[in-house]
Structure formats: structure tokens, C-alpha cells
Write a protein that binds this DNA or RNA. Structure first.
Length: 421
RNA sequence: GGAGAGGUGGCAGAGUGGCCGAAUGUGCCUGACUCGAAAUCAGGUGUACCGUAAGGUACCGAGGGUUCGAAUCCCUCCCUCUCCGCCA
């Protein structure tokens, strides 16, 4: 949620910030409603104060006396007005808040301007794409792929995009998760195992609602959403809580399956592991002091990058341009791994600073050490990493002539072998 | 799922229609005493919104209702505990 004070004081700044993103909203309507709201609140509270004073005066009177009866009648009229006015105020506040929730975060000054994804900047590239094995081929074309990952039976049991991982492949996924979690722990992130379903309040706090309502699976009978990322339950862990400044930054990580409807996004380039409705991911989350959040974003990105380096997978880092960063995001890096078989970059991580946007919605604040008002923290998160595309890159880049897949050295103890065969 | 009890400030806990944003205890902060600490004493100690300010308003699980007036009465929902049932 945007700071309403900034919107009031400097609507042009917000307007320009939003114009750089791919979202639309009617700021003028919100500002008009803001004026109306404050006026209604003032009227309501003034009348309410009047009622309280008058009501207090009645305490002194004996019930049933003519004076009491006379006052009572006047008070009834006042109560009717108070009630009507409060109902109006409540209605205006509800509309005001609903509109406010539709305003996206504004991009940080360091985010490059751009009209679409072609203007994302390559922030850095790591590893050598040219040394990829001559046997490299798309993961869905390697000899044992269908034996290891069963899409057909996934379709039978659930639907497209819900594969089974079989035997050594299942163990490889588990090994990757353990590697990722151990790596996060060694970087100071406390592991959490979270719920996989969340309520609407949680979805709203992190910004999935109302923005991405249609992208989440919804458990109708219980009004719960299947999480699209661990970001939602993990960030909401501290919803409506106040930290002491000395406790910041806080770092947590969590493995969860992620459920995404991906409505409307199917087409070319989604074969095999490239895009799934359910996938496994380890997510890093930070709660920081506002002054340090952008530095913390850099170290968060490095924490994610280090895993790809250890897996010896070539990758690049994109600094996302204004039009391509998400609704709640202030600044965002995407990590893309090189899939040498498909010869394309696959997004395996998105590391973002949400500044105070989620924290305002979620009511996550801190008490400054020097005293003064409590204020929102900054929240950040990043994948480290999403499994299927990392898996795809390992399969594609490391497949040998005989169809066996060489397991990266760092991963071997987690997998329990040197080859997937 | 059934029956019962309950949800009040950081925590414990009183309050069953007005004198209650809320006793009391405890924790925490500040000061006094002390060489220092403990003990003791005194003061302070929630969040949000409206207002330039003075100040005002709201919040006793959530939402609605009754009433001149609701922490307190009524309704719905959520949650916790106890017992029973079911169950990995």
C-alpha cells in the first residue's frame, strides 16, 4: 500500500511512478475520495463527541423524571443522525481502502526506464556458455526423460503441468531442495516450514490480492488460496507485529511447493519443465530497516547467485526495467540460468525489494531505537531457487553421449551419486 | 463433527449497561536512595485515524444489532481450551 501522505503531498510523483509500470489506476478518484473521507470522518467524530457529552449529562438525571424524558427524545434524534453519518463514513472508507489497494508500488530511482521486457538490463553474466557439452539437448529430449518425469500420468491424476518425478529424479529434486536450504541456513536465514494454503488477508498483505486473484488456486469450501510462493505465508508470519529496531534485519527461508494457474500464459516455450502449475521452490525473505533495504537486496541477490555458481551453471542477472517489475515491487533482479539444450535463458529466481509497500498492507512495523513513531519495515524476497528450471539446466548442460547426466559436484552428496542414470 | 467453557493492555487478571481505554498484579523505561546492585519509593509505559494546534474519535477476538449510552445485552462468524467422536 502506498503511503497516503505521499499521495496527498505529491500526487504527481506517484502518478509518474505508476505510469512507468504496466498498471493503471485512477489517482484522481482516490484523491477525491480521500477528501470526502476526511470530511466524513470529521463530521462523524464531531457529532459523536457531542453525543457523548450529552449522554454523560444524562447520568446525573434520575430516570423517569420529566427532564430525563425530554432529554431522551432529543437524544434519540441525535442517535439517528450519528448512526446514519457513521454508516456513510464507513462506506466511504471501504471504497477508499479498496481503491488504495489497487495502487502499485512505485519504482525506485535506480530502476532503468523501459517500455517492455526488451529493455531489461543485463546486470551481469557469469560462467561460460560455450563450454556446455556438445551432447547438450533440450531436457525433454534426453533419453530417459519420460521415465524420470511422468507428465502423462500427471495429466491422468491431476492435469497438465502436474508431473510426477520418479526414482532417482525424485531423489535429485529432494537433493536440490536440501542443498538450497542448507545454503540459505549458512547465509543466516532461519528455516521455516509453512502452511501451503493462506487466507485472503494474507494474500492482500503481500499484494497478490487483488492484483493476481485469477492466478491463484482457490479452495472454495474454505475460502483459502493455494500459495503461489512461500513469500506469502513467510512474509505474513509477522503480520500486524511490531519489531524492535535492534532485531532488524530478520532473515527467514522456506521450502514450499508453489501453485500457479498460469491462466493465459500457455503457448510456445512451455514444454517439459519450463512452466508448471506446481513446482518446488526455496524462498528467502528479509525484513529490514528502511535505510538498508537496497543494500540488503544486493546481498539477497548474491545469496541466490552463489547457488548457481556452486552448481556450475552459467547464468545472467537482469535488472528489470520499470515496465517489467511487479505490482508490489520497487526494484527487481531476475536470475536466468542458461539451458544449453534449448539454447535459451530460463528464469530461476526473482529478487525484489518491496520497500514499505507490503509492510504497510501487512502492518509490519518497527519501533525506532531513538524513539518516535513506529514505522513500516521494508520487506524483500527472492527465490533461491525454483527447482524445475534449475533441474532443466542441469539435465541439458550435463547430459552425456550415453544419456547419463553428470551431477554437479556440490550436489553429489545430496543426491547420493555422481550420475543420474 | 457433537457437548461444554472461554477470548480484556507485553503477560497475568478484575470488570455483566453510564463514574471504563479499562482496577490490581507483574514486566519494561526514567528518577530517588546506594560505591554499585538488590530491595524500596515516585513517575512513566498501546495502536490507528481526524485536526496547523489545542484537542477529538475509534479499538476489550471479528462483523452486525438493541439502547440516549455497550467490554458488559442479542445475533452471526472466527479462534482457544476440556470431554466425546473421527483420524495420519
Amino acid at each position: 500500500m502506498i503511503d497516503i501522505q505521499i499521495l496527498r503531498d505529491n500526487p504527481e510523483r506517484v502518478r509518474q511512478g505508476i505510469a512507468l509500470k504496466k498498471f493503471n489506476c485512477d489517482l484522481d478518484a482516490i484523491l477525491a475520495l480521500d477528501v470526502e473521507r476526511r470530511q466524513k470522518v470529521l463530521e462523524s467524530e464531531t457529532l459523536r463527541a457531542e453525543q457523548k457529552v450529552a449522554s454523560q449529562a444524562m447520568v446525573a438525571l434520575d430516570k423517569g423524571t420529566p427532564e430525563f424524558q425530554a432529554k431522551l427524545e432529543a437524544m434519540q434524534a441525535l442517535a439517528t443522525r450519528v448512526k446514519a453519518l457513521e454508516a456513510e463514513t464507513k462506506a466511504v472508507e471501504a471504497r477508499w481502502e479498496a481503491l488504495l489497494l489497487t495502487i502499485p508500488n512505485v519504482p525506485h530511482a535506480s530502476v532503468p526506464l523501459g517500455k517492455d521486457e526488451t529493455e531489461n538490463q543485463v546486470f551481469k553474466t557469469w560462467g561460460n556458455m560455450d563450454v556446455i557439452s556438445p551432447h547438450a539437448r533440450p531436457h525433454f529430449d534426453i533419453p530417459n526423460f519420460e521415465k524420470w518425469i511422468d507428465f502423462a500420468r500427471g495429466v491422468k491424476v491431476t492435469g497438465a503441468g502436474f508431473p510426477f518425478y520418479i526414482g532417482p529424479m525424485a531423489r535429485l529434486v529432494r537433493g536440490l531442495l536440501n542443498l538450497f536450504l542448507d545454503e540459505a541456513a549458512s547465509n543466516g536465514y532461519t528455516e521455516m516450514l509453512s502452511p501451503h494454503l493462506v487466507n485472503a488477508a494474507s494474500g492482500t498483505a503481500t499484494g497478490q490480492l487483488p492484483d493476481k486473484e485469477g492466478q491463484m488456486y482457490f479452495a472454495n469450501g474454505d475460502e483459502l488460496y493455494l500459495i503461489p510462493t512461500a513469500e506469502v505465508p513467510v512474509t505474513n508470519f509477522f503480520r500486524d507485529e511490531i519489531f524492535e529496531e535492534k532485531d532488524l534485519p530478520l532473515k527467514r527461508c522456506g521450502y514450499t511447493p508453489c501453485f500457479r494457474r498460469e491462466a493465459g500464459s500457455w503457448g510456445a516455450h512451455v514444454r517439459g519443465l519450463n512452466r508448471l502449475h506446481q513446482f518446488d521452490k526455496v524462498e528467502l525473505v528479509k525484513w529490514t530497516h528502511p535505510d538498508h533495504s537496497f543494500a540488503e537486496l544486493e546481498s539477497l541477490r548474491e545469496d541466490a547467485e552463489r547457488i548457481l555458481q556452486k552448481l556450475e551453471l552459467p547464468y545472467r542477472v537482469l535488472l528489470m526495467c520499470t515496465k517489467d517489475i511487479g505490482f508490489a515491487h520497487s526494484k527487481q533482479y531476475d536470475l536466468e540460468v542458461w539451458a544449453g539444450g534449448q539454447k535459451r535463458w530460463l528464469e530461476v529466481s526473482s529478487c525484489s525489494n518491496f520497500t514499505d509497500f507490503q509492510a504497510r498492507r501487512a502492518g509490519i512495523r518497527f519501533r525506532p531505537q531513538a524513539g518516535g513513531k513506529v514505522q513500516p519495515v521494508h520487506t524483500l524476497n527472492g527465490s533461491a531457487l525454483a527447482i524445475p528450471r534449475v533441474l532443466a539446466a542441469i539435465l541439458e548442460n550435463n547430459v552425456e553421449a550415453d544419456g547419463r547426466v553428470k551431477i554437479p559436484t556440490i550436489l553429489q552428496p545430496f543426491f547420493g551419486g555422481a550420475y543420474l542414470e
